[in-house]
């Protein structure tokens, strides 16, 4: 019996909890991408690097706060820096929109041209990020690392396996729920949110109804700035900051968007979790898990891993391919053409 409990705790600790928090981080990023898809009608390749940039702003502000001895007790100081970083991110995004995207929007350029412009923005943004903080790994989470440590859990339950809940995981899941709730309330219940959906649905009719495209675009970028910054900071608190790993979030994020259905906000959330859990389930080594469950003679001697962790983004890719082959519209019928 305890063996079964141990096996379950093992999976909870190494697959479920990390999956939940990574999934939330992906979902927030995917929500931002899907909003841009729905309203501005292009795949924003700059998403990962913009996330990195807003995280860089947060890190710099956190260092500044720490320098003046301001911290947030057991919570990470970065939370204090977050609002300012969101504003910084918004200013950057609005500048990019003014100098890059607005022109193509007015020209009614093909989406693929705007995608290419966003690739240009991706490289400029990535350059700024690396120029400021370099390519190294930075850990900026302070305060208590754990809410429950593995040791405390073991002492509490008497099990051999521990279930550790990191502060960052707790924060990620709580903030993600609140933020997603806010975004959905905004889109479903407020006049501006409904106007955004209307604009996404039928641009010409939205104009005929008197909806101002400028306002819609501005509100979209505000939401994107909030989602992007929070997703980036939560990811950084969880795993530390490194420019490349943010850049590489692009693929799982796109995969999440497409799995859920392009332009569909609920789809982006579901997609984020599909990707994160697939990644963790397929790259987890089940050896220990089966040692708990199987009698001694049947116990495995290999790692029992489907895929090495170095190929974790191959999981996103394979899921992407499966979706494109079987149901290109995604789970929540998104836009295919």
């Amino acid at each position: 019996m305890t063996d079964i409990l141990n096996a379950i705790v093992l999976l909870l600790n190494f697959v479920f909890l990390p999956g939940l928090s990574y999934g939330s981080q992906l979902a927030l990023g995917a929500l931002a991408v899907t909003l841009v898809y729905a309203i501005l009608r292009f795949a924003n390749f700059a998403q990962g690097d913009t996330m990195a940039l807003s995280t860089v702003m947060t890190i710099l502000l956190t260092w500044l706060l720490q320098h003046f001895g301001i911290t947030l007790g057991f919570m990470p100081t970065a939370l204090l820096a977050l609002p300012l970083a969101i504003i910084g991110c918004l200013i950057y995004i609005m500048l990019v929109d003014t100098f890059v995207y607005r022109y193509y929007r007015r020209q009614k350029s093909k989406p693929i041209t705007i995608v290419m412009a966003s690739v240009g923005v991706m490289f400029v943004t990535g350059g700024i990020v690396r120029f400021v903080l370099g390519p190294d790994h930075h850990i900026f989470a302070d305060g208590e690392r754990f809410i429950i440590t593995a040791r405390e859990f073991k002492a509490m339950t008497g099990l051999a396996e521990g279930l550790a809940i990191k502060t960052s995981q707790f924060l990620t899941i709580t903030i993600a729920i609140l933020l997603v709730g806010f975004v959905f309330y905004f889109l479903q219940r407020t006049k501006t949110g409904k106007a955004m959906r209307a604009y996404a649905d039928n641009e010409d009719l939205a104009l005929l109804s008197g909806i101002e495209p400028h306002n819609i675009v501005r509100v979209t970028w505000i939401l994107v700035a909030i989602l992007t910054t929070i997703a980036g900071v939560l990811y950084g608190l969880d795993k530390g900051f490194m420019a490349t790993s943010y850049h590489q979030l692009l693929l799982p994020t796109f995969a999440a968007v497409i799995v859920g259905g392009i332009g569909s906000p609920p789809g982006a959330i579901i997609g984020g979790f599909v990707i994160s859990f697939s990644e963790l389930i397929l790259t987890y080594a089940y050896k220990k898990f089966f040692i708990y469950l199987l009698p001694e003679i049947l116990q495995p001697d290999s790692l029992l891993q489907f895929l090495g962790t170095e190929y974790k983004f191959a999981v996103s890719f394979v899921i992407l391919v499966i979706v494109l082959l079987l149901r290109p519209t995604g789970i929540f019928k998104g836009k295919v053409i």
Binding site: R197, D201, L205, A206
Partner: peptide
Amino acid sequence: VPQTDNVFPTM
């Protein structure tokens, strides 16, 4: 009322 696309279908 336009001839086509005269509603917001997902609303």
